[in-house]
């Protein structure tokens, strides 16, 4: 494959189940099928958007890729190395290159640490710098995320949500990573501040050739920032394609429903269009439906859909969908 060269990350049949224990002897009675066999790759310098409803497994995917969870099965290749098989020390070194930015800028920073310590901690942990060097590097990082370096001695509570998210970005950048999992980095922020953070992430990506896995539920923001987009439903990938292809020509009934539910900031749109509203709720990931997982809400499901689990199939070049009727 000619594209193999610039593939930075390759996820192969990744499964992440969380066991459920019950009773006095803690017998395992079942498992949450959070991620249930997903495969995709991410190319160097690109942004892959990951969308889907709450609980569909987006964060678990991000965490399992970074080996913050030990996957139940499957492989994760980063720069050609299988992270799942890596011993702890080589994995620790690899971790420098892979960082994560979290959803909640309030909870993800240690309230008792100064900004200097928060941003400088990874540098210390990896013995990359000491004393004055750290202070200088932290100042550079703060400037990079457009924060005043004089703020280094302050504590997180002295900052606004958008500023805290910048602190999180500065920390993630400290070790010059090549890959960052952005887990809903703007969801908790106000509209006017979201644009600031998105612009910052885009600028940094250009400057440092960063690769992002951008997890979000705001589909219009995902369209804005991504090169390709993957749609998850109940632990599997329903569809994956280039962003324009996905938004203009969605093939999977779930993607179609999701796109039609996006609120559009245009009242005239609502006069002209009747949207398709998806009925019902997402089923429990403890007992996912047989066959196609979307069949309990799919407007075109038939008996066949309850028997066969559709594979993620390449329908046109680069456009994959998991539906028996596509």
């Amino acid at each position: 494959m000619e594209n193999e060269k610039n593939t930075l990350l390759k996820v192969d049949n990744l499964v992440m189940h969380f066991p459920i224990y019950r009773g006095v002897i803690s017998r395992q009675v079942g498992a949450v099928h959070a991620v249930d066999g997903i495969s995709f790759d991410v190319k160097e310098g690109e942004t892959l958007g990951l969308v889907g409803e709450s609980g569909c497994g987006k964060s678990t995917t991000g965490r399992a890729i970074l080996q913050l969870y030990k996957p139940t099965s499957g492989e994760v290749y980063f720069k050609g190395k299988n992270l799942v098989k890596l011993k702890s020390e080589p994995m620790r070194m690899m971790r420098r290159e892979m960082q994560m930015i979290f959803q909640d800028p309030y909870a993800s920073l240690n309230p008792r640490m100064t900004v200097r310590d928060i941003v400088g901690e990874p540098l210390m942990a990896f013995g990359q710098a000491s004393g004055k060097e750290i202070t200088e590097r932290v100042a550079d990082l703060l400037k990079l995320v457009k924060l005043n370096p004089d703020f280094a001695s302050r504590y997180p509570h002295e900052f606004s949500g958008g500023q805290r998210q910048r602190i999180g970005v500065a920390r993630a950048l400290a070790l010059n990573p090549s890959f960052i999992v952005c887990d809903e980095p703007i969801s908790a922020l106000d509209v006017s501040i979201q644009a600031q953070v998105v612009n910052l992430l885009e600028d940094l990506q250009k400057e440092f050739n960063l690769t992002y896995l951008f997890i979000a539920h705001d589909l219009s923001m995902v369209r804005h920032i991504s090169n390709r987009v993957a749609v998850m439903y109940l632990g599997i990938i329903a569809e994956i394609a280039d962003r324009d292809e996905l938004y203009v020509n969605p093939l999977h009934p779930y993607t179609q429903a999701l796109l039609s539910a996006i609120p559009v900031a245009d009242p005239v749109y609502y006069e002209k269009n009747r949207r398709k509203v998806l009925e019902g709720d997402v089923p429990s990931p403890v007992n996912p439906p047989s066959g196609c997982r979307f069949r309990t809400r799919c407007p075109i499901a038939d008996a066949h859909c309850a028997e066969v689990q559709p594979e993620l199939r390449e329908v046109s070049p680069g456009h994959f969908a998991a539906c028996l009727k596509v």
């Binding site: 600031q196 612009n199 900031a265």
Partner: peptide, 25 residues
């Protein structure tokens, strides 16, 4: 104007930088 400008346009054809209102509430 700023609020509406900072929203990504869903039919965005070419990638344009988002307008952002600088500063804080």
């Amino acid at each position: 104007l700023g609020l509406l400008g900072s929203l990504p346009h869903i039919e965005e054809k070419v990638h344009t930088r988002l307008f952002s209102i600088e500063g804080m509430p």
